[in-house]
């Protein structure tokens, strides 16, 4: 049985339907990455899975006693709130200091123990957030664009750390990422999302799928194409309304081989 699965999931955010008919599941030991353009519902899906957002329709099945370690997208800590790393790790539940130190050591951030959260660099901050997620001995680590704001070597090191932790803890990893080249190297399975599941499977399979190419282009095997989104994406057999998609079609005048969307 899978750790976590959803069937027929629909969800709204801010009055707009951003997800419809999503089926998805994740097993122990798997690294699954969700990719998709801005506004495609990636973060919404994660928020539904961690329980922050009630779905409009659909079933969510969690394995009994499922423990979920959540690493949010960049967390803003108000400078009026004095908070050391050590204290941050004790929220919301007290854990033994040794356990907190072990978690920090695992993410290579032990030296930050006494530092103020507000004074950390982007990379340090993400390592502390990751350490915090490890404290509940998670069955699934859920990461929402955890490497946003890190430079390339920084995010490469971060994903290496994730893969390492997956091996150590035998947990599943579910993440949202913008960095397609890393995704292709680091994931067991990729879920390509655009309001619905466009395609999913092994990274190589997804990279060559026409739906994925329609979204990201095929130029460098999908690696660098995310920000050159020069096509009008449409799946004719889906009934969803593209007025709902936030992606910008101002470049539609350019002709590309993918123009018109392959189905």
């Amino acid at each position: 049985m899978s750790l976590l699965s959803v069937t027929g999931l629909s969800a709204r955010q801010g009055g707009k339907r951003v997800l419809s008919g999503v089926d998805f599941s994740i097993d122990r030991g798997e690294i699954v990455t969700i990719v998709g353009p801005n506004g495609s519902g990636k973060s919404t899906l994660l928020r539904v899975l961690i329980g922050a957002l009630k779905p409009e329709a659909g079933q969510i099945t969690r394995a009994q006693g499922l423990r979920l370690g959540y690493v949010p997208q960049k967390l803003h800590i108000d400078p009026t709130l004095p908070l050391t790393v050590a204290r941050f790790l004790q929220l919301p539940h007290r854990v033994p200091a040794q356990k907190a130190r072990d978690a920090l050591a695992r993410t290579g951030a032990l030296g930050l123990w006494d530092q103020q959260m507000a004074g950390l660099s982007g990379g340090q901050f993400q390592r502390v957030l990751l350490a915090r997620a490890l404290l509940c001995d998670p069955d699934i680590l859920v990461l929402d664009e955890a490497t946003q704001g890190l430079d390339q070597p920084g995010s490469a090191a971060f994903y290496e750390l994730i893969a390492h932790l997956r091996g150590d803890l035998n947990c599943a990893v579910l993440m949202v990422s913008h960095e397609l080249h890393v995704v292709m190297a680091a994931s067991d399975r990729v879920l390509c999302l655009n309001g619905h599941v466009c395609c999913q499977g092994a990274p190589e399979h997804v990279a060559s799928a026409p739906e994925y190419r329609a979204l990201f282009g095929s130029g460098t095997h999908g690696a660098l194409a995310l920000y050159r989104h020069e096509h009008s994406h449409s799946h004719d057999h889906h009934s969803h309304d593209h007025a709902d998609c936030d992606h910008d079609h101002s470049n539609d005048g350019h002709s590309t081989p993918q123009s018109g969307g392959a189905v």
Partner: peptide, 19 residues
């Protein structure tokens, strides 16, 4: 106290911890 602090830091962090 702890729940309030967690929710003050970030609502999603609180949801993730079952609060």
């Amino acid at each position: 106290w702890s729940a309030l602090l967690t929710a003050t830091l970030n609502p999603d962090l609180a949801y993730g911890a079952g609060l």
